[in-house]
Amino acid sequence: QEELVKAFKALLKEEKFSSQGEIVAALQEQGFDNINQSKVSRMLTKFGAVRTRNAKMEMVYCLPAELGV
């Protein structure tokens, strides 16, 4: 569980995922086979993730800066 949270936060820091499906796929690539869209959705809510525009003006998920991840 701890490893999943770390990987999840690291992915969001990249600010390149525009959908929950993309986050699920990226986590599965890292070996988290039991991850699915509903789990990702709950984690996004739990950590207060928001959708914002990145440098390329794409809408992407990211974590609020005050979490200091």
Rank of each mutant, 00 (worst) to 15 (best):
L27K: 01
A26W: 08
L11A: 05
M57T: 04
Q20M: 14
E14P: 02
T52P: 02
V50T: 09
F47E: 04
M57S: 09
V24T: 07
N34K: 11
E58M: 07
Y61R: 01
K56W: 07
Q37P: 10
G21V: 12
K16W: 04
N36F: 04
E22C: 04
A65P: 15
A7I: 07
E3H: 10
G21W: 13
Q30I: 10
I35T: 04
G21N: 13
E3R: 09
I23C: 02
L12V: 04
K46L: 14
L67Q: 14
K46I: 13
L67P: 15
S41E: 14
P64E: 04
E15S: 08
C62Q: 08
E14S: 13
T45W: 09
P64C: 12
E14N: 06
Q30H: 07
A10L: 12
E58A: 05
V69G: 14
I35V: 12
L63S: 03
R42H: 13
F47W: 06
E29Q: 12
L63G: 02
G68K: 06
T45Q: 12
E66P: 08
L11R: 02
P64Y: 04
E14I: 07
E66Q: 09
L44K: 01
E22M: 10
R42C: 09
R53V: 13
Q20R: 14
V60C: 02
E14A: 13
I35N: 01
S38G: 11
P64R: 06
V60D: 01
A10F: 08
S18K: 15
R51M: 15
T52Q: 14
A10R: 10
L12K: 00
T52C: 15
S41N: 10
A49F: 04
A49M: 03
L44C: 02
V50S: 07
V5E: 15
S38L: 11
F8C: 15
C62H: 07
G21L: 14
E3W: 09
F32V: 01
M43C: 02
K46E: 15
N34P: 04
N36A: 05
T52Y: 09
E14Y: 06
Q20Y: 08
S18D: 03
R53I: 13
L4R: 01
F17C: 15
